[in-house]
Design a binder for these strands. Sequence first.
DNA 1: ACCTGAACACCGTTCAAGT
DNA 2: ACCTGAACACCGTTCAAGT
Lengths: 226, 226
Amino acid sequence: MSEVQAKRAVGRPPRLERETIVATARRVLEEEGVHALSMRRLAKEVGSTPRALYHHVRDKDELLLLVLAGMAASAPRPELPTAPRDRIYVIALHIHDMLQRLPWVVEVLGLGHVTDKGALWMVEEIVNSAIECGLAPREAIRAYRVIWLYIYGDLAVHAAIDRRASEGGEAEHRRPLPDMLTPDDAATLPRLTALGPQWNEVANVCDVPNGLHAVIDGLLARGAGA
Amino acid sequence: MSEVQAKRAVGRPPRLERETIVATARRVLEEEGVHALSMRRLAKEVGSTPRALYHHVRDKDELLLLVLAGMAASAPRPELPTAPRDRIYVIALHIHDMLQRLPWVVEVLGLGHVTDKGALWMVEEIVNSAIECGLAPREAIRAYRVIWLYIYGDLAVHAAIDRRASEGGEAEHRRPLPDMLTPDDAATLPRLTALGPQWNEVANVCDVPNGLHAVIDGLLARGAGA
DNA sequence: ACCTGAACACCGTTCAAGT
DNA sequence: ACCTGAACACCGTTCAAGT
């Protein structure tokens, strides 16, 4: 019957913690994606009001940044081969596979924030390995960037496709390229018309392992050849 | 003084045309980007009400699709070299440079819609050239995809950075990777710490021409070697 | 210091009428 | 058939108070 219990039946008054906000935001992101996370929704989720959140984070951007911080640290590190060329491949594929399982992270990264600092060891490792393979430091940085952009491109495109698939019901658009070809196009686009069925077959299989091999070989060959 | 002029001082009554809506939407996109285009804003821009727009387009997605249609047709085609390997490079770079000047197109593509049909000749050309270089049709499709994902990754990352730069005022975050390294990190990330100044130098220059050369070489070598 | 309720200036989309 | 005004169910963020 004290003034504390007058507010709630049990325990201490529920002072909102920054950590609670961030953890709840992460949960919503994991369960429903970035589109489901709004400040108002989050306020309800933690049993508070929108305004109260702004007492603990500057704005929504800072909140997303806080959610991202330390994500990489919680992921398991892969075993690394000793050959530097293989090390690049294994790390690159690891980055891809890890992020593919966490589509919301890609969506947040897509907003243009920095990378989580805990992920930098992978950058360090790739750049180091590239130098070990004979690339100049400058070329090694460039090589890392090409690899990252390829990975990011794949994740972004797949995220967009998945988003669309889960949202749109019937939707005539979003067809996988060759389905939009009419017989008329046989004249101007003979190859794509002929390839038609094979296209989807190839496009629906994840080609990143193969792609990475090719990209890495190309990058190392150019550096070493010079 | 006729009943026509009673509504407006000049000309015929302004029945809203689908074409007007799409053209106005394109103008807003070009001038202010995808974030500025809302159905309400667009309604004001064409001097009508939000509801009226839904008489001419199913929803916002269909509108964006219509804006995209025929974009590629209006772009100039580059002169193509005769050597197939060079043709791949020239087309790939052309795609990149074209889209870099039209950031709103990338933002719309990022929503997961189909590619503009008028752009398919470039896909056809790349796939054909790859086959001419000795790749099996399957490999040629894969090669095209790797090239596209690299280009798209570069455009998406740069679009995100630019968006952030134009929005956020001072914003402590959005620093270009090595600035976030403290002296403490020298132990765990020696190479990145040492590379510090060089990183920005390399990252701020567009490396896509170099990157494409490496990627294409890697893709063709793998196909031809098998 | 931390919280609430109400508000400001927006969204995409749809209902019920108007002509 | 095509349009309007008002509404529904949302946004991020901030003002003016409350304790």
